[in-house]
Design a protein around this nucleic acid. Structure first.
Ligand SMILES: [Zn+2]
Ligand SMILES: [Zn+2]
Length: 238
DNA sequence: ACCAACGTTTGG
DNA sequence: CCAAACGTTGGT
């Protein structure tokens, strides 16, 4: 199945019909999101001659989800912070997909097999060209991750994806600093601490790593297909 | 929460 | 191999 981000999905056909301004801004958002997923696309490529959003074929559902997250109005609503029971998390959060019933294998893999968190979320894993580590790094990480997997135990399928080490965003103020302050605990304790200078610590990495299932792109994706399931979006020509 | 220490991953 | 620095654990 080839995932589409269709115009009809983006702009509800019965809704207040698209001003081209809205389409344009959505195109900008989607293009940005796709770019961050490694798919270089310009807003103009998503807009037709009349300024309407075009149906865009995407290389993976991951891209579709990211684009949906950037476009859909509810993607960034704060989650109902109500005491979410520490339920077995896996089955519960996956139920939306079972409901939709049409989740392609790639998505099922991306969502169901998510071992709880993967760093960075939407840019990882599916869709993009394979990470391609041709050298001994592959073997290195293979053995290392195998060992790491051994410790975990609960709920993880054997040989499930190892959790990736997150990388600094590179654009936040701390990331832009080039010099260690030399005064903070991390600097003073560099020999044994192995930590970056506190003034250089990336703001993103300070945040608790978010699981893919709690990411805005996943929520948008789930919402997207929930609506599709209930027929609120036009999907007849998919 | 902060911190120290260590193990581990990652890119060069 | 090595340096940098993320993840984790244990102590406070
Ligand atoms: Zn410092
Ligand atoms: Zn940063």
């Amino acid at each position: 199945m080839v995932p589409y981000l269709s115009r009809d999905a983006i702009l509800p056909s019965h809704g207040p019909l698209s001003s081209t301004d809205i389409a344009s801004s959505k195109a900008v958002s989607a293009a940005h999101a796709l770019l961050s997923c490694g798919l270089p696309v310009t807003p103009n490529e998503m807009l037709g001659p009349k300024g309407m959003l075009l149906r865009l074929e995407l290389p993976s559902m991951m891209h579709a989800a990211a684009a949906a997250a950037a476009i859909m109005p509810h993607a960034h609503l704060p989650r109902p912070k109500t005491q979410s029971q520490p339920q077995p998390q896996g089955p519960t959060q996956g139920s939306a997909f079972q409901l939709a019933g049409t989740a392609p294998e790639t998505i099922a893999a991306a969502t169901m097999a998510d071992p709880g968190n993967n760093g960075g979320g939407m840019t990882m894993g599916l869709g993009g060209p394979a990470p391609v580590s041709t050298d001994s790094a592959a073997k290195r990480s293979a053995s290392a991750t195998a060992m790491a997997a051994g410790g975990g135990g609960v709920g993880a399928a054997a040989g499930s994806a190892a959790k990736k080490k997150r990388k600094r965003c590179g654009v936040c103020p701390p990331c832009l600093r080039r010099l260690n302050c030399g005064e903070c605990r991390s600097c003073k304790n560099r020999r044994t601490g192995h930590q970056i200078c506190k003034l250089r610590k990336c703001e993103e990495l300070k945040k608790k790593p978010t699981s893919y299932r709690s990411s805005s792109s996943f929520r948008a994706f789930r919402q997207f297909f929930s609506y599709a399931h209930f027929g609120l979006w036009k999907i007849s020509h998919w």
